[in-house]
Design a protein around this nucleic acid. Structure first.
Length: 378
DNA sequence: TAAGCGTGGAA
DNA sequence: TTTCCAAGCTT
């Protein structure tokens, strides 16, 4: 066990700096308590590690917390999740975004259940073959849940490492280099072993990785990093030059073009007309109200022509204002039209009526919740 | 290889 | 307000 005293002695220069040890020592003192993390020293549950890692892809810790708790309460293990319907999973995921993650999460649980007897593979290669698990997530699960000596590289670690070494190459080209540099921050494994599993002499690979992530999220932040508190500050090349915030280098991202469309809020008493989006692509498999295409330069007249055909609807009421929403790659403006139809009016092909009172349980993405709220005057 | 894919929080 | 961006994956 690395004590703070030992670490500080090394930092004074009596010995060459031992970055892996400094890092683990810092982690032992500042480790965050998170819903998916077991108490210090206890073995992590692969199911929880996997579930949290999928939710955390491009999504903040604070946002994920409640969703993780909800999922764990309803589906406490991979067998339970693999036995659920995809639609139930999408409903629970609604609001978290990047819905292909939810579809892949379910597909992965099914695969683990049917092809691996309900037990997660304990190697990167085995994990990588599962839906929704890419290079980062495979390495993260292997290191955190199975103590495989590997270093997952996420956005936090890219930032920490690119600063530590002042990596001039821009992302994403610099990924391989950053991966190599990041791996030097892993502690030693037992001689001759490619990897150490729980029960063997520990490499603490998972702790090393989570130490870098915690460091990146709390100290080595994108703006105004708290370098004075960083256990690696004496070794940091960017800090020595005073331009920490300039790393990682990356090309500026282009902003998408505004798209416009119409959404049709059709009520039948206390029910609302909805349909399910196609499985693939934007908001795939999620519930939506009928609407026009979303196109750059879409004009209101063209959009209105794409209204659903319902018996008895002679005119649409246009609500004042527009609903705006920003996706990753484009902003959207929706014009909202409403209509109320007689009881027993049949839904158009592929659509259905749902009680407004139970909308909260539908697999509605947030953009649709906004549109419905606007249309219903909520 | 580059583009597609949500959302909300923070500065 | 605007901009950035958070434990990336898929095609």
């Amino acid at each position: 066990m690395n004590s703070g005293v030992v670490a500080k002695a090394k930092r004074r220069g009596a010995e060459p700096s031992d970055r892996p040890a400094l890092l683990l020592d810092w982690y032992d003192r500042h480790r965050r308590r998170l819903p998916w993390r077991p108490p210090a020293g206890e073995r992590a549950d692969p199911y929880r590690v996997w579930l949290s890692e999928i939710m955390l892809q491009q999504t903040g810790v604070k946002t994920v917390g409640p969703y993780f708790e909800k999922f764990l309460a309803r589906w406490p293990d991979v067998a339970a999740l693999g036995s659920a319907s995809q639609d139930d999973v999408l409903r629970m995921w609604a609001g978290l975004g990047y819905y292909s993650r939810a579809r892949n999460l379910h597909a992965c649980a099914v695969a683990v259940l049917r092809e691996h007897g309900g037990v997660f593979p304990d190697t990167e290669q085995g994990l990588r073959a599962l839906p929704g698990i890419g290079p980062y997530t495979a390495a993260a699960i292997a290191a955190i849940a199975f103590d495989v000596r590997t270093m997952p590289v996420d956005g936090n670690i890219e930032r920490v490492v690119s600063r530590l070494y002042a990596v001039e190459e821009p992302l994403p080209q610099a990924k391989p280099l950053i991966g190599e540099l990041a791996s030097t921050l892993l502690g030693p494994s037992r001689a001759g072993d490619e990897k150490s599993r729980a029960g063997d002499e520990k490499s603490r690979a998972g702790d090393s990785a989570q130490a870098l992530m915690d460091l990146g999220s709390s100290i080595c932040t994108p703006k105004k990093p708290a370098c004075a508190l960083c256990p690696l500050n004496e070794d940091c090349v960017a800090r020595a030059r005073g331009d920490q915030e300039a790393f990682p280098r990356k090309a500026p991202k282009k902003t998408g073009t505004l798209r416009r469309g119409a959404a049709f809020i059709v009520t039948r008493g206390e029910q609302l007309l909805v349909r399910t989006r196609v499985e693939k692509g934007l908001l795939g498999g999620m519930t939506e109200v009928p609407g026009s295409e979303w196109l750059a330069g879409q004009d209101d007249k063209t959009a209105l022509k794409q209204a659903p055909v319902l018996k008895g609807v002679t005119r649409w009421h246009r609500k004042a204002g527009v609903v705006t929403h920003v996706f990753t790659h484009f902003p959207l403006e929706l014009v909202i039209y409403t209509a109320d139809v007689a009881a027993r009016t049949r839904p158009p092909e592929g659509m259905r009526w749902v009680p407004i009172a139970t909308l909260a349980d539908e697999a509605l993405p947030n953009v649709m919740r906004k549109a419905i709220a606007h249309g219903l005057g909520l």
